[in-house]
Amino acid sequence: MSDDVLDRYGFAERHLSEAARAVLDELAETLRRDIVPLMAEAWERALMPDAVLRTLVPMRLMDPAGVSAEEADSSMFSGFRCLTLARADVSVATIYTAQAGLFRTTIRHGGSPAQAAAWDPLIRSFEVKGVFCLTEPDHGSDIAGGLATRARREGDEWIIDGEKRWIGGADAADVLAVFARDEADGQVKAFLVDRHAPGVDIRIIGGKVSLRPLQNAHITLRGVRVTEEKRLHGVNSWRDVAGLLRRMRSDVAWIATGLQAGALDAAVRYATHREQFGRSLGGFQLVQEKLARMLGNVTSSLALVTALSAQQDAGVWSDENSALAKMVTAARARETAALAREVIGGNGLLLEHDAARFFADAEAVYSYEGTHEINALIVGRSLTGASAFA
C-alpha cells in the first residue's frame, strides 16, 4: 500500500522498509494480473485453482529477496502480506496464511528449537504443506475445556483418537498439526500427523456460502500412531496453545482489514464507471457518504492492526489486545462489505463485480480465530478482572 489512495496516513511507508514495500507491490500486481481473474469461477465451482499456490510459492513471501530476515519474520510484514492477499481474495489469504501463519507458528513456537530448525525451511519453501487442527465437531468456542480428541502413550509412540472440523486446506496438506488431550495427565499436547497415516480420514465439507474456494475438512482419527519425535515438545498445556493463538489472531485482524480494502476497491471501481440518471454514480451524495464510511473503517482498522503489530514486534504479546483487534476489524469488515454491496446495488450480488465475494467472506472472518463474543469476553475480563466465560 506504499502509494495507495486507501493508505491516507502512510502506515506502510512508516512501518515497512522500501524493500518490503517493493515486495508487497509486486505481490499486489501479481494478484491483480494472475489470481483475481480466476476467483469468480473458483467461487462458483468451490475449488481453489492450482494456479494460486503455483504462482505464490515461487515468490517466497516468507523470506523474500532483499528483505532482512528480521523484517521478513516480523508481525508487521506478515500483517501487510495478509492484507495484500485478502484485498485480492480472502480464500487466497486464508490458504496462504494456513501455511505461513497457523502451521508455521505452531512449529516455530510450539516445537523444540531442534524441531523448529528442521521444519521451518520446509514450511517456507512449501516443500511440506501443513494445517492447524484444533476445532472439533462439538467444540469450537469452548475448545479450551472441551477438547475431546485423545492421545495415549505406548512406549515411543502415541495413539490418537478423535475428530477435527473446519480444517482449511487439509485435503492438500502433507502434515496435520493435531491437538489432543493426553489421557495420562489431562493436558493438551500437539502432534505432527502424516496426512496419509493409517486411521486418518479426511472429508470435504460441502454446502458453504463463505470462503467457497477454500476446502474445509472434517477429519477423523482412529488409532492413529505418531512417534514421540513427532510430538511438539513446546506444547504441554492449554496455556501453551493459548500462546500460539495469541500470535495467530493478529493475522486474522489483518485479513479483516484487507477484506475491507478489497470491498472498497470494488465499490469505487463500480461507482466511477456506472452511470445512472445521466451521470456517474460516484457523483451522488449518498454514494459518496457510503464510500467515505468505508474508507473510515479501513483506515481505523489499519491504524489498529499496525499498532498491534508494532507492539508485538517490540516483544509485547497481549491476549486482550489481539482479541480487541480481531473483534473490531471483523465487525468493521461486515459493515464495509455490506456497504460495498449497497453501492453496487443488485449487481453487487454478481461475482463479476467482486463485492459479493467479500460480502459473503466477511461472515467467515467474523467467526474464525475466535468469535466476536469470545474475543469480547477476553477484552471484558481484562477491563473488569472478572471472567464471564461459562
Rank of each mutant, 00 (worst) to 15 (best):
T84G: 00
I123W: 03
P137M: 11
V90A: 12
Q115C: 07
M48V: 05
A51T: 13
T97H: 14
G79I: 02
V90I: 15
Q115D: 13
F132R: 00
M59N: 10
L122H: 09
S112P: 04
H109V: 04
L47D: 13
M59V: 05
I123E: 01
E127W: 05
P37E: 07
F132S: 02
P64H: 09
A86P: 08
T84S: 07
L102A: 15
H109K: 13
G111V: 08
A114P: 04
W43L: 00
P137Q: 09
A116E: 09
L83Y: 05
A69C: 02
R87P: 07
F126I: 06
S125F: 12
G66L: 06
F80T: 05
R108G: 07
C82A: 15
S112R: 05
M76S: 13
A116N: 13
V128C: 12
D89N: 13
L102T: 12
A86E: 00
R33F: 11
A86Y: 05
V92D: 02
S75M: 13
V67Q: 12
T105F: 11
I95K: 01
S125A: 12
A93W: 05
A42L: 08
W43R: 12
E136R: 03
E70I: 06
Q115K: 06
I123T: 06
A40M: 08
F77C: 04
H109W: 14
A116G: 03
L83T: 04
G130L: 06
S125L: 08
G66C: 07
A51I: 07
P64V: 15
A42Y: 01
G66Y: 09
P121R: 04
L38K: 00
W43C: 10
A93E: 10
D89M: 02
A40V: 02
E127V: 02
V36E: 11
E41M: 04
M39W: 03
A46Y: 04
L134M: 06
L56A: 06
M59W: 09
E71T: 12
M59Y: 02
A114N: 10
L56M: 08
R124A: 08
V92M: 02
E70L: 11
L53A: 05
V67W: 07
V92T: 07
R33I: 11
V128S: 03
R104H: 08
P121C: 00
G79C: 09
P64F: 08
A69M: 10
I95R: 14
M48F: 04
A42M: 01
F77E: 05
Q115W: 03
L134K: 04
G110Y: 00
L134S: 00
A118T: 09
M48D: 11
P113R: 13
G66Q: 06
E44N: 14
D120L: 07
